[in-house]
Design a protein around this nucleic acid. Structure first.
Lengths: 365, 365
DNA sequence: AACCTTTTATGAAAGGTTTCACGAGAGCGA
DNA sequence: TCGCTCTCGTGAAACCTTTCATAAAAGGTT
C-alpha cells in the first residue's frame, strides 16, 4: 500500500503536478473550479504532502531544535528545563513551528546534530568553545546560545554573577561566617576553569566575600550533582566531616532543597539554625516547606527571548545580539531577612543602565 | 554561501557521489585508502549529509512525534507530561531516535500532523474516535494511542477504573459519606459521554458507591480544570455553596493538591478534618505537605511501553497490542488509613489473571 | 596469455515536492 | 482579423541522497 503522492492527485484530477501544488500553496493562480476539483481529488485520495520532500526542496522544515548536552530523560526530569521549554514552546506554538529536543544520539551529540531535521538550534548549557559546536557550523543552520558565551552567534544569559553576589551578600551582611557553598559538579576536562554559569555564580559568591574582607576557601565549596539527592548527600557528607555551617548558598534550587532535607533529617531547623538560599526559582522553590529564598531568574522568558532571536535570524537574517536578563533575590521562608527586593542589572546598579534598558526592550519584544 | 553537498566532496576526492555515500554508510565496500581520502575531503569541506534528502530517500527520519491536543506551553508546565516524556525519551535516546513534540499549529492539529517530519506518533489523551486522528491515517505513519481507545492501532492504558474504585472504596469503608468528587473539565462536545480517562475514573468511583449501597449524585461531582488553581477554586466554590465534605476524591493529583490548599485556607486540617485522595502520583504528590495519598499509575513506564510498541511496529510491523498497566493505591499522609498496598489488576483481583500476566510481561519487556 | 572470480567504483534512477520559465487559449481593442 | 495582454496551466529542473545494476580493475589459476 504505497503512500498517495502528488502524482496520484494530479492523475485523478486530470491536471499536472504543478497545478496540484499551486492548488495547495497559491490557489489564486488557478481558476476556482480547477482548485476545487483538485482539492476534491486530494481529499478523496487522502493526500497529504510529504514533509521530507517539501523540506528538501524549500530548505525549511518548520522545526526548531533544542540542543541539550545530556540524555533526554534527565532533561524532562529537571523542572528547570521544563520551564525553559515552556518558554520556547510558547513562541514556536504561536508561530506554527515544531519543537525537536535534540540530545546525544548514542552518546554522540555530533551525530544528533547532523541528523536532526531542523531549521535552527537553541543551545542550552553548552559554550561555543565546546567541541560539540563545530558540527553545528558545518550543518550551516543558525543557532542561539543560552547560558553560555558565543562569539559568532547570538546569546541569551542572565546576570548570574550579580544574582549570586546578592545572595552571598545578604548572608554575609546578616553576620554568617560559616557558609557552605554548593555548586555544580564540573566535567573532568574543565575542573578548574570555572566556565559558564557555574563559574559566573561562583565569581559572584567570591566577590561578596571579598567585599566583606573575607575569602571563600575551597574547603567551603562542595561540588555535587544538580539533583535533590546531590544536595542532600553533599550536605550530609559535609556534616559528617564535622562541618557545621550556619548558612547554605546553593547554585541551584534543587540542590538547596536537597540540602534542606538533609538538614531537617540531621535535626537542624530552617531558617532558625540554618539559612538557605538557592538559585533559579523553579516552581518547586515556592512550594517547598519552608519556601525557599532564592535568586530568581526568568527561565521561561529566557526561552522565549532565545527563540524569538533565532526565528528573527532565520526569517530576516537579523543581527547577532548578546542579551543579558536581570536576576532578582527573592526572600521567602528559608531565610529570616526582611523582604526587600533587590533586582540586579539595570535597576539596583547604576553602571549598567544602558544594558538594562536594552534588556528590558529585548524581553518585551 | 551554498551548503556543501555530496557532489562537492566527490569532486574534491575525485570519486563519484556513490563512492562518497558508501564511504559514510558502508565503508567495507570501498578500498581503505579510498575511504580515508573521501573522509578527509569531507572533513576539510565540512560536509554533513542533508537530513531531509536522506529522509526523503530512505523514508525514515529517525524522529518520533508525540502528539498533544493542547498548546505546548501547557504541556511542559504539566508535571504529568514531564514524567511521560521522560519515559518516551529514555527509549528514544537509547535507540538513537529524535523526539518531536507536536501540538496544534495555529490551532490546527491537522496541519501539525501533516507537516511533522516524523516516522510515527505517540498520541496522548486523544481518542481514536476524535476527528483529529483521521489526518493521521492519511499521513500513513503508524501510531500508538495512550490513554485512549483505539480499534486500528495499538494502545497503552492504565487501569483507571480499578484505581478509582480502590480510592473510593477506601474512603467509603472508612465511613465517609460526604465525599466531594473533583473531575476533569469536559470539552463541550462530549459533556455527557464520559469518555476516556475521565469516564473510566468516574465509573470506578461510581461502582464503589454502588457496592456500598450508595449512589454518587451529580451534585457531588465538580468538573474543573486540571491545575492547582482548578482544584483550589473548585473546593472553595463548593465550600461557599455550603458543601461540607469530609473527604475529597480528585481525578488528578494537581487538583487534589489545589483542593488541599483551599481547605487549609478555609481552616480545615488534612487529614484530620478532611481526607484527600488524588490520582496519578506525580512527583509533587510525595513532596506536598501533607504528602498526598493517591492512586499511583506508572506514568514513565507508560511512555516507555508505548514507545517500544511504536518502534517495534516501525521496525518489524509487529502486531497491534492493547496494553493495560496496573494502578496502585498509595497511602500517604492525606488519609489516616493503615498502609496496605492494593494493586489493581492481576494481583488484587482474581478474574484478571491472564490480563495481568500479559501486562507484566509488557511492562518488563 | 587466457580466462574466471572477486573486489572496487560508477551511472543513473528514485524519492516527492516546489518553482521557474514558458506556452496555449481567451478576451479585447483597433 | 491581427496583435496584444491576461489568465490559467504545464514541463522540467532543482533540492540531495541512497542504492541497484553494472562496469572496470585487480588478482588468481591453469
Amino acid at each position: 500500500m504505497r503512500r498517495v503522492t502528488i502524482h496520484d492527485v494530479a492523475g485523478k484530477a486530470g491536471v499536472s503536478t504543478a497545478a496540484v501544488s499551486h492548488a495547495f500553496n497559491d490557489p489564486e493562480r488557478l481558476r476556482a473550479t480547477t482548485v476545487t476539483r483538485i482539492l476534491d481529488a486530494a481529499r478523496e485520495l487522502g493526500y497529504a504532502p510529504n514533509p521530507h520532500a517539501r523540506a528538501l526542496h524549500s530548505q525549511r522544515v518548520g522545526v526548531l531544535g533544542v540542543l541539550f548536552p545530556q540524555p533526554i530523560a534527565t532533561v524532562f526530569a529537571n523542572p528547570f528545563f521544563a520551564s525553559f521549554l515552556e518558554g520556547i514552546g510558547s513562541v514556536t506554538d504561536e508561530r506554527g513551528i515544531g519543537l525537536l529536543t535534540v540530545t546525544p544520539l548514542g552518546g554522540s551529540l555530533e551525530r544528533a546534530i547532523a541528523a536532526a531535521p531542523v531549521d535552527g538550534f537553541v543551545i542550552i548549557g553548552l559554550d561555543e568553545r565546546h567541541a560539540e559546536v563545530a558540527p553545528l557550523r558545518k550543518r550551516g543552520v543558525p543557532f542561539v546560545v543560552v547560558d553560555g558565551d558565543a562569539e559568532t552567534a547570538s546569546s541569551v544569559n542572565v546576570d548570574d554573577e550579580g544574582g549570586a553576589y546578592a545572595a552571598a551578600n545578604l548572608l554575609l551582611d546578616r553576620g554568617h561566617r560559616k557558609i557552605l557553598v554548593l555548586t555544580f559538579h564540573a566535567p573532568p576536562d574543565e575542573l578548574d576553569k570555572d566556565l559558564g554559569v557555574r563559574g559566573r555564580r561562583l565569581r559572584g559568591y567570591r566577590r561578596a566575600f571579598v567585599d566583606h574582607g573575607l575569602a571563600l576557601g575551597d574547603d567551603a565549596i562542595v561540588r555535587t550533582f544538580v539533583t535533590l539527592a546531590g544536595g542532600d548527600t553533599a550536605f550530609a557528607k559535609a556534616w559528617a566531616d564535622g562541618v557545621r555551617p550556619t548558612a547554605v548558598l546553593a547554585a541551584s534550587d534543587i540542590m538547596a532543597i536537597g540540602a534542606m532535607r538533609a538538614a531537617k533529617r540531621l535535626g537542624r531547623e530552617v531558617p532558625k539554625d540554618l539559612e538557605v538560599i538557592g538559585f533559579d526559582d523553579i516552581p518547586l522553590a515556592a512550594a517547598s516547606d519552608p519556601a525557599l529564598t532564592t535568586v530568581h531568574q526568568p527561565i521561561t522568558e529566557k526561552g522565549r527571548v532565545a527563540t524569538r532571536l533565532l526565528i528573527r535570524e532565520l526569517d530576516e537574517g537579523g543581527p547577532r545580539e548578546r542579551i543579558v536578563l536581570p536576576t532578582e533575590l527573592l526572600l521567602r521562608e528559608s531565610t529570616r531577612a526582611q523582604a526587600t527586593k533587590s533586582r540586579t542589572l539595570g535597576v539596583a546598579k547604576g553602571g549598567t543602565d544602558r544594558e538594562g534598558k536594552r534588556i528590558l526592550k529585548a524581553a518585551a519584544r
